[in-house]
């Protein structure tokens, strides 16, 4: 009996040593990949990261300083010029309307970006208060696969590939978002979130906190749609997405209502 216990103990110790060794080697591999400028997402897919001079640390889970008032401490936004997926060139100005622009720095290989790509392809999902113009900026063909980008890109949103823009905006990694007031060319906020719904909630909340209604009806690309307007009116009255008051318990979920 004593021999059996001793044997099991030795086996457990050996197993522990083996697991520790595996964890150490895994950490070493991740550290090496990070040094090479490649992050690995939760599902193991690579997150491309900008190369060049040491970028600032990404601010995960929060859209730093996002507000619809003066962006204290933030630089002016620069115009963006780069290649298109069709082989042409595109120049976007950040100073030629009274409205807002949401510049979305995304990558085709970043697992966290997938939710943003999906949301941008769905016109019903990408509505935001103030109806900002959405501009997607990826790195160029030296880092990105145009084929993958073509499969992800919405057909009705401007997409420009520009390493220069990533450097000028000091983008720490994808996804990263910058909100710009195009009347002044000033950045109102920048940062990153894990999901589109989180980003949307932050923008809605910032409109409530900082009086974003001055951007209503200033959308450069057409009149505000009804859904966006309804969202904004609700948010202004403190009712944000997910608020229990939006759901009638007698009816249940939207899907329940459809099934009735």
């Amino acid at each position: 009996m004593a021999g059996l216990i001793a044997g099991e103990s030795i086996a457990l110790i050996m197993l522990g040593v083996l697991v520790l060794g595996l964890l150490r080697s895994h950490a070493a591999v991740l550290r090496k990949l990070h040094e090479l400028g490649l992050d690995v997402g939760q599902d193991g897919s690579p997150n491309t990261r900008p190369t060049g001079p040491s970028p600032p640390t990404p601010h995960t889970d929060e859209l730093i300083n996002l507000r619809v008032g003066p962006g204290d401490g933030l630089n002016s936004a620069t115009d963006i010029t780069g290649r298109t997926l069709q082989g042409g060139t595109l120049a976007i100005s950040m100073t030629n309307s009274k409205g807002l622009a949401l510049v979305a720095f995304l990558s085709g290989g970043c697992s966290t970006c997938r939710d943003f790509w999906d949301s941008f392809r769905d016109p019903g999902k990408r509505v935001l208060p103030g109806s900002p113009r959405i501009v997607i900026v990826t790195r160029d063909e030296s880092t990105e696969s145009p084929g993958i980008l073509r499969s992800l890109a919405p057909g009705d949103v401007q997409l420009v590939m520009s390493n220069a823009a990533w450097e000028e905006y000091r983008v720490p990694g994808a996804p990263y978002f910058v909100m710009v007031d195009c009347a002044t060319g000033k950045k109102l906020g920048e940062g990153t979130t894990k999901s589109w719904s989180q980003l949307r909630d932050l923008i809605v909340q910032s409109f409530v906190d900082y009086g974003g209604d001055r951007f209503d009806n200033q959308s450069p690309l057409g009149p505000k749609d009804r859904e966006s307007r309804a969202d904004w009116e609700l948010a202004r009255n403190g009712i944000l997405p997910g608020d229990p008051s939006l759901y009638n318990p007698a009816i249940g979920t939207f899907q329940d209502a459809r099934n009735k």
């Binding site: 115009d79 010029t81 069709q86 082989g87 042409g88 060139t89 100005s93 030629n96």
Partner: peptide
Amino acid sequence: MTALLSAHEIEVLLPAGWEGEIYRRPG
């Protein structure tokens, strides 16, 4: 700020506030 836009042997220097695209539709 001005931006240089160039593709398909066409080039333009855009003044501040202007934007543009040079493209070719897929045949």
